[in-house]
Protein backbone atom coordinates (compact mmCIF):
# COMPACT_ATOMS: atom_id res chain seq x y z
CA UNK A 1 0.00 0.00 0.00
CA UNK A 2 1.33 3.33 -0.95
CA UNK A 3 1.91 5.98 1.65
CA UNK A 4 -0.70 8.12 0.00
CA UNK A 5 -3.43 5.51 0.25
CA UNK A 6 -2.56 4.87 3.89
CA UNK A 7 -2.95 8.50 4.66
CA UNK A 8 -6.31 8.48 2.98
CA UNK A 9 -7.51 5.57 5.07
CA UNK A 10 -6.35 7.38 8.16
CA UNK A 11 -8.54 10.29 7.20
CA UNK A 12 -11.69 8.29 6.77
CA UNK A 13 -14.22 9.04 9.42
CA UNK A 14 -17.25 6.97 10.24
CA UNK A 15 -20.31 9.00 11.07
CA UNK A 16 -24.06 9.00 10.86
CA UNK A 17 -25.82 11.04 8.20
CA UNK A 18 -26.08 13.85 7.18
CA UNK A 19 -22.60 13.76 5.67
CA UNK A 20 -22.64 17.02 3.81
CA UNK A 21 -23.23 20.07 5.89
CA UNK A 22 -23.30 23.68 4.90
CA UNK A 23 -21.23 26.06 6.95
CA UNK A 24 -24.21 28.08 8.15
CA UNK A 25 -24.72 28.29 11.84
CA UNK A 26 -26.93 30.27 14.19
CA UNK A 27 -24.12 32.58 15.17
CA UNK A 28 -23.08 33.21 11.57
CA UNK A 29 -26.61 34.11 10.54
CA UNK A 30 -27.25 36.23 13.60
CA UNK A 31 -24.03 38.21 13.30
CA UNK A 32 -24.69 38.74 9.59
CA UNK A 33 -28.12 40.14 10.40
CA UNK A 34 -26.52 42.37 13.03
CA UNK A 35 -23.97 43.56 10.50
CA UNK A 36 -26.62 44.42 7.92
CA UNK A 37 -28.45 46.46 10.54
CA UNK A 38 -25.29 48.36 11.42
CA UNK A 39 -25.51 51.01 8.64
CA UNK A 40 -29.07 51.97 9.61
CA UNK A 41 -28.07 51.97 13.29
CA UNK A 42 -25.03 54.16 12.66
CA UNK A 43 -27.11 56.48 10.52
CA UNK A 44 -29.55 56.95 13.38
CA UNK A 45 -26.66 57.75 15.72
CA UNK A 46 -25.50 60.32 13.17
CA UNK A 47 -28.98 61.80 12.91
CA UNK A 48 -30.10 61.64 16.55
CA UNK A 49 -26.77 62.12 18.29
CA UNK A 50 -25.02 60.41 21.17
CA UNK A 51 -28.30 59.83 23.00
CA UNK A 52 -29.24 57.27 20.37
CA UNK A 53 -25.95 55.46 20.83
CA UNK A 54 -26.44 55.33 24.60
CA UNK A 55 -29.98 53.97 24.28
CA UNK A 56 -28.76 51.38 21.80
CA UNK A 57 -25.92 50.25 24.07
CA UNK A 58 -28.26 49.98 27.06
CA UNK A 59 -30.64 47.80 25.02
CA UNK A 60 -27.92 45.49 23.76
CA UNK A 61 -26.01 45.15 27.03
CA UNK A 62 -29.21 44.54 28.99
CA UNK A 63 -30.33 41.87 26.53
CA UNK A 64 -26.99 40.06 26.53
CA UNK A 65 -26.55 40.21 30.30
CA UNK A 66 -30.11 39.00 30.91
CA UNK A 67 -29.58 36.05 28.57
CA UNK A 68 -26.28 35.22 30.28
CA UNK A 69 -27.76 35.34 33.79
CA UNK A 70 -30.80 33.23 32.86
CA UNK A 71 -28.74 30.57 31.14
CA UNK A 72 -26.30 30.44 34.06
CA UNK A 73 -29.16 30.20 36.53
CA UNK A 74 -30.82 27.37 34.60
CA UNK A 75 -27.52 25.52 34.11
CA UNK A 76 -27.98 25.70 30.36
CA UNK A 77 -25.09 26.21 27.96
CA UNK A 78 -24.41 29.93 27.73
CA UNK A 79 -25.02 31.05 24.15
CA UNK A 80 -24.69 34.81 24.38
CA UNK A 81 -21.91 34.79 21.79
CA UNK A 82 -24.25 33.57 19.04
CA UNK A 83 -25.53 37.10 18.59
CA UNK A 84 -29.24 36.38 18.99
CA UNK A 85 -29.57 38.32 22.24
CA UNK A 86 -27.44 41.06 20.70
CA UNK A 87 -29.85 41.14 17.76
CA UNK A 88 -32.89 41.29 20.01
CA UNK A 89 -31.36 44.23 21.87
CA UNK A 90 -30.43 46.01 18.66
CA UNK A 91 -33.86 45.48 17.09
CA UNK A 92 -35.56 46.73 20.23
CA UNK A 93 -33.36 49.83 20.16
CA UNK A 94 -34.32 50.42 16.52
CA UNK A 95 -37.97 50.30 17.56
CA UNK A 96 -37.96 52.99 20.21
CA UNK A 97 -37.36 56.75 20.14
CA UNK A 98 -33.83 57.76 21.08
CA UNK A 99 -35.03 60.19 23.73
CA UNK A 100 -36.48 57.73 26.26
CA UNK A 101 -34.96 57.72 29.78
CA UNK A 102 -32.38 54.99 30.46
CA UNK A 103 -34.62 52.62 32.42
CA UNK A 104 -37.07 52.11 29.58
CA UNK A 105 -34.72 50.35 27.16
CA UNK A 106 -33.39 48.40 30.15
CA UNK A 107 -36.86 47.23 31.16
CA UNK A 108 -37.78 46.46 27.56
CA UNK A 109 -34.70 44.34 26.97
CA UNK A 110 -35.15 42.39 30.18
CA UNK A 111 -38.79 41.68 29.31
CA UNK A 112 -37.89 40.75 25.74
CA UNK A 113 -35.23 38.23 26.78
CA UNK A 114 -36.56 36.96 30.10
CA UNK A 115 -40.30 36.86 29.42
CA UNK A 116 -40.70 36.62 25.66
CA UNK A 117 -37.75 34.32 25.01
CA UNK A 118 -36.69 32.29 28.04
CA UNK A 119 -40.03 31.56 29.67
CA UNK A 120 -40.91 29.87 26.37
CA UNK A 121 -37.74 27.79 26.43
CA UNK A 122 -35.10 29.97 24.80
CA UNK A 123 -33.99 30.48 21.23
CA UNK A 124 -36.14 28.58 18.76
CA UNK A 125 -39.08 28.06 21.12
CA UNK A 126 -40.45 31.57 21.43
CA UNK A 127 -43.90 32.13 19.97
CA UNK A 128 -43.53 35.89 19.63
CA UNK A 129 -40.69 37.99 18.32
CA UNK A 130 -38.87 39.02 21.53
CA UNK A 131 -37.89 42.50 20.35
CA UNK A 132 -41.48 43.29 19.38
CA UNK A 133 -42.80 42.00 22.70
CA UNK A 134 -40.29 44.30 24.40
CA UNK A 135 -41.54 47.21 22.35
CA UNK A 136 -45.22 46.40 22.92
CA UNK A 137 -44.64 46.20 26.67
CA UNK A 138 -42.79 49.52 26.62
CA UNK A 139 -45.55 51.16 24.60
CA UNK A 140 -48.15 49.97 27.10
CA UNK A 141 -45.97 51.00 30.03
CA UNK A 142 -44.86 54.49 29.07
CA UNK A 143 -47.16 55.55 26.24
CA UNK A 144 -46.11 59.20 26.33
CA UNK A 145 -42.34 58.73 26.34
CA UNK A 146 -42.60 56.02 23.70
CA UNK A 147 -44.46 58.26 21.28
CA UNK A 148 -42.37 61.40 21.71
CA UNK A 149 -39.89 61.52 18.89
CA UNK A 150 -36.95 63.89 18.58
CA UNK A 151 -37.07 66.49 15.85
CA UNK A 152 -34.43 65.68 13.30
CA UNK A 153 -34.02 68.95 11.56
CA UNK A 154 -33.10 70.97 14.63
CA UNK A 155 -29.99 70.18 16.59
CA UNK A 156 -31.50 71.59 19.78
CA UNK A 157 -32.08 69.06 22.52
CA UNK A 158 -35.59 68.41 23.71
CA UNK A 159 -37.40 69.59 20.62
CA UNK A 160 -39.89 66.95 19.64
CA UNK A 161 -42.13 66.40 16.70
CA UNK A 162 -44.74 63.99 15.43
CA UNK A 163 -43.81 61.27 12.96
CA UNK A 164 -45.10 61.55 9.41
CA UNK A 165 -47.77 58.95 10.17
CA UNK A 166 -48.77 60.87 13.30
CA UNK A 167 -49.22 64.06 11.29
CA UNK A 168 -51.12 62.12 8.62
CA UNK A 169 -53.45 60.66 11.22
CA UNK A 170 -54.14 63.85 13.17
CA UNK A 171 -53.71 66.69 10.70
CA UNK A 172 -54.22 65.14 7.32
CA UNK A 173 -52.33 64.58 4.11
CA UNK A 174 -52.08 68.19 2.88
CA UNK A 175 -50.53 69.30 6.16
CA UNK A 176 -47.97 66.50 5.94
CA UNK A 177 -46.94 67.46 2.42
CA UNK A 178 -46.64 71.10 3.43
CA UNK A 179 -44.28 70.15 6.27
CA UNK A 180 -41.83 68.73 3.74
CA UNK A 181 -42.43 71.32 1.03
CA UNK A 182 -43.72 69.23 -1.83
CA UNK A 183 -44.41 65.60 -2.61
CA UNK A 184 -41.05 64.72 -4.10
CA UNK A 185 -39.25 66.31 -1.16
CA UNK A 186 -41.40 64.21 1.17
CA UNK A 187 -40.60 60.96 -0.62
CA UNK A 188 -36.94 61.82 -0.71
CA UNK A 189 -36.86 62.67 2.97
CA UNK A 190 -38.66 59.44 3.86
CA UNK A 191 -36.42 57.37 1.64
CA UNK A 192 -33.12 58.82 2.83
CA UNK A 193 -34.28 59.12 6.41
CA UNK A 194 -34.25 62.80 7.27
CA UNK A 195 -37.42 62.73 9.34
CA UNK A 196 -38.42 62.01 12.90
CA UNK A 197 -39.24 58.57 14.16
CA UNK A 198 -37.92 55.66 16.18
CA UNK A 199 -34.21 55.07 15.84
CA UNK A 200 -34.31 52.35 13.24
CA UNK A 201 -37.30 53.27 11.17
CA UNK A 202 -35.98 56.44 9.59
CA UNK A 203 -33.81 55.43 6.67
CA UNK A 204 -35.69 53.24 4.24
CA UNK A 205 -32.69 53.15 1.92
CA UNK A 206 -30.23 51.61 4.37
CA UNK A 207 -32.79 49.12 5.69
CA UNK A 208 -33.66 47.98 2.17
CA UNK A 209 -29.97 47.58 1.33
CA UNK A 210 -29.40 45.51 4.47
CA UNK A 211 -32.49 43.44 3.79
CA UNK A 212 -31.50 42.91 0.17
CA UNK A 213 -28.18 41.47 1.27
CA UNK A 214 -29.95 39.07 3.62
CA UNK A 215 -32.21 37.97 0.78
CA UNK A 216 -29.16 37.50 -1.44
CA UNK A 217 -27.56 35.30 1.21
CA UNK A 218 -30.80 33.35 1.56
CA UNK A 219 -31.23 34.14 5.25
CA UNK A 220 -34.64 35.65 4.75
CA UNK A 221 -37.35 34.85 2.25
CA UNK A 222 -37.99 37.65 -0.27
CA UNK A 223 -41.68 36.80 -0.26
CA UNK A 224 -42.23 38.16 3.25
CA UNK A 225 -41.06 41.77 2.78
CA UNK A 226 -42.39 41.97 -0.77
CA UNK A 227 -45.87 40.72 0.10
CA UNK A 228 -46.09 42.63 3.35
CA UNK A 229 -45.00 45.97 1.95
CA UNK A 230 -46.98 45.31 -1.24
CA UNK A 231 -50.14 44.59 0.72
CA UNK A 232 -49.74 47.80 2.68
CA UNK A 233 -49.11 49.74 -0.54
CA UNK A 234 -52.12 48.36 -2.38
CA UNK A 235 -54.51 48.66 0.53
CA UNK A 236 -53.50 52.18 1.50
CA UNK A 237 -53.67 53.23 -2.16
CA UNK A 238 -57.16 51.78 -2.45
CA UNK A 239 -58.59 52.75 0.91
CA UNK A 240 -56.32 55.39 2.40
CA UNK A 241 -57.49 58.50 0.57
CA UNK A 242 -60.31 60.86 1.37
CA UNK A 243 -61.33 61.34 -2.26
CA UNK A 244 -62.81 57.90 -2.70
CA UNK A 245 -61.22 54.66 -3.79
CA UNK A 246 -57.64 54.59 -5.07
CA UNK A 247 -56.82 58.09 -3.90
CA UNK A 248 -54.42 57.19 -1.10
CA UNK A 249 -50.68 57.67 -1.20
CA UNK A 250 -49.07 54.21 -1.27
CA UNK A 251 -45.48 55.49 -1.48
CA UNK A 252 -45.87 57.55 1.68
CA UNK A 253 -47.40 54.60 3.51
CA UNK A 254 -44.81 52.12 2.32
CA UNK A 255 -41.86 54.32 3.27
CA UNK A 256 -43.06 55.66 6.59
CA UNK A 257 -43.35 54.15 10.03
CA UNK A 258 -41.70 50.93 11.01
CA UNK A 259 -42.96 49.04 7.96
CA UNK A 260 -39.63 48.56 6.17
CA UNK A 261 -37.81 47.64 9.36
CA UNK A 262 -40.62 45.31 10.38
CA UNK A 263 -41.05 43.68 7.00
CA UNK A 264 -37.34 42.98 6.46
CA UNK A 265 -36.14 42.27 9.98
CA UNK A 266 -39.04 41.30 12.22
CA UNK A 267 -41.58 39.57 9.98
CA UNK A 268 -38.76 37.38 8.69
CA UNK A 269 -37.67 36.03 12.07
CA UNK A 270 -37.10 32.31 11.39
CA UNK A 271 -38.59 31.17 14.67
CA UNK A 272 -41.89 32.97 14.77
CA UNK A 273 -43.20 32.75 11.19
CA UNK A 274 -44.58 29.82 9.16
CA UNK A 275 -42.16 27.37 7.57
CA UNK A 276 -43.47 26.99 4.02
CA UNK A 277 -43.31 29.59 1.26
CA UNK A 278 -47.09 29.71 1.00
CA UNK A 279 -47.39 30.01 4.73
CA UNK A 280 -44.98 32.92 4.75
CA UNK A 281 -46.97 34.65 2.01
CA UNK A 282 -50.15 34.25 4.05
CA UNK A 283 -48.27 35.57 7.08
CA UNK A 284 -46.96 38.58 5.19
CA UNK A 285 -50.31 39.49 3.64
CA UNK A 286 -52.01 39.10 7.01
CA UNK A 287 -49.46 41.33 8.69
CA UNK A 288 -49.87 43.90 5.91
CA UNK A 289 -53.66 43.89 6.23
CA UNK A 290 -53.50 44.29 10.01
CA UNK A 291 -50.99 47.12 9.64
CA UNK A 292 -53.30 49.00 7.29
CA UNK A 293 -56.29 48.29 9.52
CA UNK A 294 -54.51 49.80 12.52
CA UNK A 295 -53.11 52.73 10.52
CA UNK A 296 -56.39 53.70 8.90
CA UNK A 297 -58.97 52.79 11.51
CA UNK A 298 -57.10 52.14 14.76
CA UNK A 299 -56.23 54.48 17.57
CA UNK A 300 -52.51 54.34 16.89
CA UNK A 301 -50.85 56.02 13.91
CA UNK A 302 -48.65 52.94 13.38
CA UNK A 303 -49.42 49.26 13.73
CA UNK A 304 -46.57 47.18 12.30
CA UNK A 305 -45.52 45.96 15.74
CA UNK A 306 -48.96 44.69 16.73
CA UNK A 307 -49.64 43.35 13.24
CA UNK A 308 -46.56 41.13 13.33
CA UNK A 309 -47.22 40.02 16.91
CA UNK A 310 -50.81 39.09 16.05
CA UNK A 311 -49.66 37.12 13.03
CA UNK A 312 -47.01 35.42 15.20
CA UNK A 313 -49.84 34.07 17.31
CA UNK A 314 -51.54 32.38 14.34
CA UNK A 315 -48.32 30.98 12.88
CA UNK A 316 -48.96 27.43 14.16
CA UNK A 317 -52.43 27.53 12.57
CA UNK A 318 -51.02 28.69 9.23
CA UNK A 319 -48.43 25.92 9.39
CA UNK A 320 -51.10 23.33 10.02
CA UNK A 321 -53.39 24.70 7.33
CA UNK A 322 -50.71 24.82 4.63
CA UNK A 323 -48.91 21.64 5.50
CA UNK A 324 -47.37 20.37 2.26
CA UNK A 325 -48.59 16.98 1.04
CA UNK A 326 -46.16 14.11 1.35
CA UNK A 327 -44.49 13.12 -1.90
CA UNK A 328 -46.93 10.94 -3.81
CA UNK A 329 -49.71 11.35 -1.28
CA UNK A 330 -53.08 12.84 -2.04
CA UNK A 331 -54.30 15.65 0.15
Amino acid sequence: MSAEAKMEIGQLTVSASPHIRCDESISKIMWTVNATLAPAALFSVYRFGVKALVTMIICIVAAVVTEYLIQKWQNKPVTVSDGSAFLTGLLLAMNIPSTVPWYMPLFGSVVAIAVAKHTMGGLGYNIFNPALVGRAVLLASWPVAMTTWPEMASKVDGVTSATPLGILKLQGYEKLVSVFGDKMEMYKSLFIGTRSGSMGETSALLLILGGAYLIYRGYINWRVPVFMIGTVGVLTWALGGHAGLFSGDPILNMLSGGLILGAFYMATDMVTIPITNNGQIVFAIGAGCLTVLIRLLGGYPEGVCYAILLMNSVTPLIDRWLKPAKFGARR
Partner: peptide
Protein backbone atom coordinates in the same frame (compact mmCIF):
# COMPACT_ATOMS: atom_id res chain seq x y z
CA UNK B 1 -40.15 56.36 40.48
CA UNK B 2 -41.71 56.19 37.02
CA UNK B 3 -43.20 52.73 37.01
CA UNK B 4 -44.37 50.86 33.94
CA UNK B 5 -48.05 51.53 33.40
CA UNK B 6 -48.48 48.01 32.07
CA UNK B 7 -48.35 46.64 35.61
CA UNK B 8 -51.70 48.17 36.48
CA UNK B 9 -53.21 47.25 33.10
CA UNK B 10 -54.62 43.82 32.31
CA UNK B 11 -51.54 42.55 30.39
CA UNK B 12 -49.41 43.20 33.47
CA UNK B 13 -51.73 40.98 35.49
CA UNK B 14 -51.34 38.23 32.90
CA UNK B 15 -47.56 38.54 33.08
CA UNK B 16 -47.45 38.50 36.88
CA UNK B 17 -49.86 35.55 37.20
CA UNK B 18 -48.03 33.59 34.50
CA UNK B 19 -44.65 34.13 36.09
CA UNK B 20 -46.00 33.28 39.55
CA UNK B 21 -47.60 30.06 38.29
CA UNK B 22 -44.22 29.23 36.81
Amino acid sequence: YDGPLIMILAPGAFLVIGLMIG
